[in-house]
Amino acid sequence: MITLKINGLDVSVEKGSTLLEAARFLGFPIPTLCYMDGLSPYGACRLCVVEIGEGAKAKLVSSCTYPSEEGLKVRTASSRVLRARRMILELLLASCPQSKIIQDLAAAHGIRRQRFKQEYEDCILCGLCVRMCEEQMMGKAIGFRGRGENRSIGTPFDIKSDVCRLCGGCMYVCPACQLRCTYNEPEKAICGACANLSPPCVEKEQFNDMMCYMDPCVACEIKKDK
C-alpha cells in the first residue's frame, strides 16, 4: 500500500494504481474524456489534470497516467486545476461543438459561452477508438496517421481495412459522436450500414432504424446544413 495525501486527507491506495484510480476509489470526482475502464490510459484529453507537489514546485499532471507515489500531495480541485480544466473544455468545445459529451462536460464546469471559433472537427484525437479496436476488439484496423495538424485517425490508405470486422466499437466509444461515420462512402467507411439504405443517412425516420451507434447524430445534421 502507498500512503499519500489527496485534497488534504491522508489516504492509502494500492500499489501500482494511478492517481485517477486512487481518487475515484476514494470518491473524489475527476472528469475524463479519453479514459475508459478496460483500455490503457493514454493522457490525450488532459481533462483529468490534477495538481501535485507544493509551493513553487507544484505542477499539473494528467492523473490517468500518473502513478501513485509515497507521500505525494495531490489536489484534484484546486483553483489552478479548475482553471486549466475549464480552458481545456473550452478548447475541446471549440474544436467539436456538436459533441454531446463535451457539451455536457462544459455545462457541468460552468462554461456558458464560447470564446473561440467553432471548428466542427470530426475528431479530437483522443485515441479511444484506436485503443478500443486494438485492446478490446483485437482488431488493429484503425490507427493514427500523419502528424501535427495533419494527424488523423483512420484505416491505412483510407480504404476498408482487411482486419475490420465492422464491430462498431470505435463508434460506440467516440466522444466526438460522428467520428467514424463516413455517410454514404462505403469504400472509406468502417461501418457503411447506412449506405445500404436509400436515401442514405438523411431521412430521420430511417436513420433511427439503422445500425448506427451515433444515434442521434447531431454532427450529421450540421454537416448537412453547411
Binding site: 490507427g143 496517421r145 502528424r147 482487411d162 482486419v163
Partner: peptide, 12 residues
C-alpha cells in the same frame, strides 16, 4: 506488425 502501425510510421 499490423498494417496500421506500418502506415502510421510511413505517414509520420
Amino acid at each position: 506488425r499490423p498494417l496500421v502501425d506500418v502506415y502510421s510510421i510511413a505517414t509520420f
